[in-house]
């Protein structure tokens, strides 16, 4: 047993002040904190009373407070953009009861290798909203690359623009309820049967996530009829650790096949 203090701040300011004074962690849904060794901390700052459950849409910009659960995000995005990549990425993540508990804030702060949210946020060029020592909007990639940003700061929300690019999400799972060995997200801008642009991210790799620039370059300005899907497969070169349950060599083969298939399906369904 560990004696933890529980704080229930009512304002963001109170929360970010507390984090500087105590050896504490922010608690959102708690699902990522439970398995942790809590010996090194002496308390939690519970965020549920903060005004971070909000959802805003202004023109094409969407903003979610960090206390929104996966289930909330899925149902809210569904109403405004049923083809959204974030929706596709999260709607089968974990399981129904966990999606009712996992928050975007906790998920982004924790960002495990099997994260289902990171890839979508990267391809959406999402901004992470921070309060505290670091204040303001930070591009998701910058946020992930610089762990110091999290220091004494609270993720208060995410912001991204809706997009009409075509997208797909593929989770490599053994059973329907599984943490993916890897997750592919891709968005393609297609006009006049030509791929104008694309963004492709694979999460779960040794680098946590990889941009598949080779494929992005290959697709750029290419007519969809000219795409050789076997070529796409060959261009994917990412590595996996296999630390958990997946065979890294197999994942490496699979990731190319599934990216090729995903793109094929996208362009054929136009």
């Amino acid at each position: 047993m560990n004696n933890l203090n529980w704080y229930f701040p009512k304002t963001i300011k109170e929360a970010t002040d507390l984090i500087t004074k105590e050896k504490v962690l922010f608690h959102a849904g708690g699902t990522a904190l439970l398995p942790r060794n809590l010996d090194k901390i002496n308390g939690f700052i519970n965020l549920s009373d903060l005004p971070l459950h909000y959802f805003k849409k202004e023109n094409d910009t969407v903003e979610f407070g960090s206390m929104n659960t996966y289930a909330n995000i899925v149902s809210k995005i569904y109403e405004i953009d049923s083809e959204n990549i974030l929706l596709k990425s999260l709607q089968t993540s974990a399981d129904t009861p966990l999606r009712n508990r996992i928050t975007i804030g906790g998920s982004i702060a924790f960002a495990p290798p099997w994260s289902d949210i990171i890839g979508a946020l990267i391809v959406l060029d999402a901004k992470i909203l921070l309060s505290g020592e670091n204040n303001g909007d930070f591009p998701i990639e910058k946020f992930l690359q610089n762990p110091k940003l999290k220091q004494n700061s609270l993720v208060t929300g995410i912001k991204f623009n809706l997009s009409n690019w075509k997208s797909f999400s593929y989770r490599n799972i053994r059973t329907k309820k599984d943490m993916p060995a890897f997750h592919i997200v891709a968005m393609l801008k297609i006009e006049n049967e030509i791929i104008q642009d694309s963004k492709i991210i694979i999460t779960g790799t040794v680098n946590r996530f990889d941009k598949i620039i080779e494929v992005e370059n290959y697709l750029k300005n290419r007519k969809i009829d000219d795409i050789e899907f076997s070529q796409i497969e060959k261009l994917v070169d990412v590595k996996f650790t296999g630390k958990r349950f997946s065979d890294p060599e197999y994942s490496q083969k699979l990731v190319g096949i599934e990216l090729g298939r995903g793109i094929k399906k996208l362009v054929r369904n136009l």
């Binding site: 933890l4 708690g30 904190l33 519970n46 009861p97 966990l98 009712n100 508990r101």
Partner: peptide, 23 residues
Amino acid sequence: ECGACMILLDDMPVHSCQIFTAS
């Protein structure tokens, strides 16, 4: 994982083993 501990929390089904009581 198993769901045997499932309850409704404000009408939403959740695994009660994945929740700190204090929260």
